[in-house]
Design a protein around this nucleic acid. Structure first.
Length: 586
RNA sequence: GGUCCCGUAGCUCAAGGGAUAGAGCAUCUGCCUUCUAAGCAGAGGGUUGAAGGUUCGAAUCCUUCCGGGACCGCCA
């Protein structure tokens, strides 16, 4: 629950009153009226743009209209001062008695503080990771995985019914290549010298256990079979092992999906869902046989101009129509992806979020086109593209090459710096901006390292709560008990700044959720940690500002309540990011 | 050639269409030996790539250009 929510209603009520009084036309649109916290503290605690938004419609100057609104707000007992400023802002200064309510709310609600009901229980499908099951996960997958997971957490926190989903690309040529690679390892396990793994197959050692398992299960049976018979067996075994490995990698980051959706199941299930999808599109008149122009500006010797089955994606904003069937007669990947999203829609998801890597940016328009076509515009698809991650070690780029085998896996990353730092850093950047990840920096104990800085604040708060027991052993430190402290005793500017910051948390959460931008939580936590550290440091020079103030038990109790609130919000925010809050640093 | 993303302080990046565009690092100036903990406080630093447009109001939305990155039937 946002502590400021009531004030927004107050502003709207004032506008309603003015409509009643004939100052503002009854039909005036109140869209765009906001109530927010000004950046500059001298502008008060809250500010609304109502007068500026309505000025034109009311035929009054913004400031003149503000003069009419202001008295209506001033009557609120929680509002101490109403000022008109700048081009027509109405700035509200809240009564000092208001602020203790914030902390009381935090302490009474505990883990629920900051939760929101804006999701209204709406079903949202978040698809993320969806790495090809052909090997271990590498760093490139990591960002999308963490992003999708944190976004899902954020949506849950704001009242959505979230399903976390992984689309398993277990159909197509690369999975057959995987199967052949596993088959080679099987022969190797039987004692055969297989030599070098041929080009186009997967050379990694991680397939050796699959070969050994096949050998143990089937002995030499598979050797006698034609490829058409052993391939499905090898494929199934390899896929199972790869998925287990991927789930294990994801587990090391605390990531767990609700649904693993098999691409293969679209055509090998009870019905051919891709054929159904194409038929569906056909009845909508969106499928035709035609030719595509060759790609311009690049030489493609393999280009073959041919009639093919096309989806009219261009009618829904895509740049051109898209083929659904390959020249060999099998479905193109896109056809399966449409069928998959159609399946999501049929399962009741009207809001879908796909988290893609930068290399999939070209798919955004066509996927949105497909969703619009299949749902008659009823479903909404947001696609979040995570840009590349560049690895550094103490400022030096880490060279990676898939061929040279110097590729950094997700597992290596987590093993070296830990899941928490990996998650936090992957989220400490907007998704559509590239991200630099420095192995050394994330483990540094400095203000420059936000992971440390935020964790340190939480550990420090925990430390205060431990230490206060020595001075006041009888203080009840439970949040519910601290809520009844005399919070009016908190009057220092540093304390007030902290309370105001804490009061922002619910709005930051809602804004981050609405924008699908979990990074905002990370930046908020950094700011909150900064306010807390600053106040702590002032206690060095001014002992009367210390949280634990031996000569005043009640004041200490109020300050401990503040510290407990900071700790709670830090923990909640870290929880959304999926980072475990530390009680001690080591 | 096209599509998408990015361009903000010296560097790395924030900023729900809102007021004087903010942090950290670096630089400069002071202070300091701890309520177990990263030392602390302050200062300077900007034509938000450029030019138009929409708006009461633009870093944010639209158009064009410049620069950087990703991608560009029949791979998934």
């Amino acid at each position: 629950m946002d502590v400021f929510a009531g004030f927004h209603g107050r502003v709207l009520a004032a506008v309603q009153q003015l409509k009643h009084d004939g100052v503002v036309p009854p039909g005036a649109s109140i869209e765009g009226i906001t109530l927010g916290s000004p950046k500059d503290a001298s502008h008060g605690d809250l500010a609304t743009n109502a007068a500026m938004v309505l000025a034109k419609q009311a035929g009054l100057g913004p400031r003149a209209l503000a003069e009419r609104i202001a008295p209506l707000l001033a009557s609120d007992p929680h509002i101490d001062k109403v000022e008109i400023a700048g081009p027509g802002f109405i700035n509200l200064t809240l009564a000092s008695a208001f602020w203790p309510r914030v902390l009381r709310m935090v302490l009474e609600q505990g883990a629920a503080y900051g939760e929101s009901a804006i999701g209204k229980g709406k079903a949202v499908n978040v698809e993320y990771v969806s790495a090809n099951p052909t090997g271990p996960m590498h760093v490139g997958h990591c960002r999308g995985a963490v992003f999708g997971d944190a976004l899902a957490n954020l949506l849950v926190f704001t009242g959505f019914a979230v399903t976390r989903e992984y689309y398993v690309n277990d159909a197509g040529a690369q999975v057959d290549a995987l199967a052949r690679s596993a088959y080679l390892r099987y022969r190797e396990a039987l004692g055969e010298d297989i030599g070098e793994i041929p080009e186009g197959l997967y050379p990694g050692d991680y397939l050796k256990p699959v070969g050994e398992k096949l050998a143990a299960q089937h002995a030499k049976e598979l050797l006698a079979m034609p490829e058409s018979e052993w391939l499905p067996i090898a494929r199934a075994a390899a896929l199972q092992a790869m998925l287990a490995m991927i789930e294990n990698d994801l587990d090391s980051l605390g990531i767990h999906h609700d649904v693993f959706f098999s691409e293969r199941s679209l055509t090998e299930g009870p019905r051919d869902e891709i054929a159904e999808t194409i038929a569906d599109l056909k009845t909508r008149g969106l499928i035709y046989q035609g030719r595509l122009p060759p790609p311009r500006g690049q030489i493609d010797v393999d280009w073959e101009d041919r009639e093919q089955l096309l989806f009219r994606a261009s009618e829904f904003g895509d740049d051109m129509d898209r083929p659904l069937v390959k020249s060999d007669g099998t479905y193109a990947y896109f056809a399966g992806d449409i069928a998959y999203h159609r399946d999501k829609f049929k399962r009741g998801f009207k809001t879908m979020i796909d988290v893609f890597g930068a290399d999939h940016s070209g798919h955004v328009k066509r996927m949105k086109a497909a969703i619009a076509a299949l749902s008659d515009g009823e479903a909404e698809l947001d696609i979040k593209i995570c840009q590349l991650v560049r690895l550094f070690r103490a400022g030096e780029p880490v060279k990676m090459s898939k061929r040279a085998g110097t590729f950094v896996t997700l597992r290596e990353l987590v093993d070296e710096v830990g899941a928490g730092p990996v998650r936090f850093m992957m989220l400490y950047r907007k998704n559509d901006a590239p991200l630099d990840f420095d192995f050394v920096k994330v483990t540094e104990q400095s203000r420059d390292n936000p992971v440390f800085y935020v964790q340190y604040a939480h550990a420090r708060a925990s430390s205060v709560l431990r230490n206060v027991r020595e001075t006041f052993p009888d203080l009840d430190l439970a949040e519910g008990a601290l809520a009844s402290s005399d919070l009016d005793l908190l009057t220092d500017e540093g304390e007030m700044a902290l309370i105001r910051r804490i009061a922002q948390f619910p709005r930051v959460v809602e804004a981050a959720s609405t924008a699908h931008e979990p990074h905002r939580i990370g930046f908020y936590l950094y700011d909150l940690a900064g306010d807390f550290h600053t106040l702590w440091n002032r206690g060095k020079d001014l002992p009367q500002l210390r949280f634990i103030y031996e000569s005043d038990r009640e004041l200490t109790r109020a300050r401990v309540a503040l510290v407990a609130s900071v700790k709670r919000v830090l923990a909640s925010g870290l929880g959304i990011l999926g980072v475990h809050a530390m009680h001690e640093l080591h």
